[in-house]
């Protein structure tokens, strides 16, 4: 719900897209990821380049060093994370999650974005922000937050969590300030039928097509954060 704000979707979108293109030379990135879960289980599609770990899962995994030894290369930090410095010292990449919820007041969001921006400023290894819906993610609400993130962090990566937002809404975010699709991007996917009907997995080609159709130049990010040759 964005009822308490002046709602100018198109104005925000125009500004955000221009800022995205300016900040990233017209590129849109995509990165396949699997999640390292407690017990060492890897969750996500085969062929995904990156192994990510949630900050909340680190204690059960035995800490940051243990997660790193099990292959984790990217940490998904919480807002106000106490381990940002440790992650940076370990040479790990990181995104910071910005939780948002339908109906929350605008100042709440502004505060959250400010917190994330402070983390980004303090730790260059934190590459971007990852808006994270708490509960239902509706279209307008989500696009509004992405546009706000781009406005606040023009040079950072504003990243779409494909597992949570899905590829449809995820692609729209690319027109509203996002510059990167992140999550279950694999070598192949099964037809979305039966038990697989809700699968969020997309292929590398589909990810590249989504980025291109959003008007950005698709670039694939590899596990170490570098870019595959285009």
């Amino acid at each position: 719900m964005i009822a308490d704000q002046e709602f100018d979707l198109h104005g925000k979108g125009r500004t955000a897209l221009l800022a995205t293109k300016a900040g990233h030379a017209g590129c849109g990135y995509f990165e396949g990821a699997r999640w390292l879960r407690p017990g060492g289980r890897l969750e996500g599609p085969d062929g995904a380049d990156c192994v990510a770990v949630e900050e909340a899962d680190l204690p059960a995994l035995g800490g940051l060093a243990a997660a790193q030894s099990q292959g984790a290369r990217l940490v998904l930090l919480t807002l106000g994370s106490p381990i940002a410095a440790e992650v940076a010292a370990a040479g790990l990449r990181a995104f910071v999650r910005i939780p948002y919820q339908a109906g929350e007041p605008a100042p709440h969001r502004t505060r959250a974005i400010d917190q994330a921006r402070s983390l980004l400023a303090a730790y260059p290894r934190i590459e971007g922000v990852l808006p994270t819906p708490v509960g239902e993610a509706m279209g307008l609400d989500t696009l509004d937050l992405f546009a706000a993130c781009r406005a606040a962090c023009p040079a950072a990566h504003v990243v779409v969590d494909l597992a949570l937002l899905g590829f449809k809404l995820g692609q729209l975010c690319l027109a509203f300030g996002a510059d990167e699709l992140f999550g279950p991007i694999g070598a192949a996917r099964a037809l979305r039928l039966g038990e697989n009907s809700g699968s969020p997995v997309i292929t590398v080609k589909e990810a590249a097509d989504l980025v291109a159709a959003a008007g950005l130049l698709p670039r694939r990010r590899l596990a170490d954060g570098s870019l595959a040759p285009s």
């Binding site: 979707l9 198109h10 993610a137 279209g139 809404l169």
Partner: peptide
């Protein structure tokens, strides 16, 4: 889909 349909209202 709901998010896209909702956005389509704009």
């Amino acid at each position: 889909g709901l998010p896209v349909a909702q956005t389509a209202l704009w």
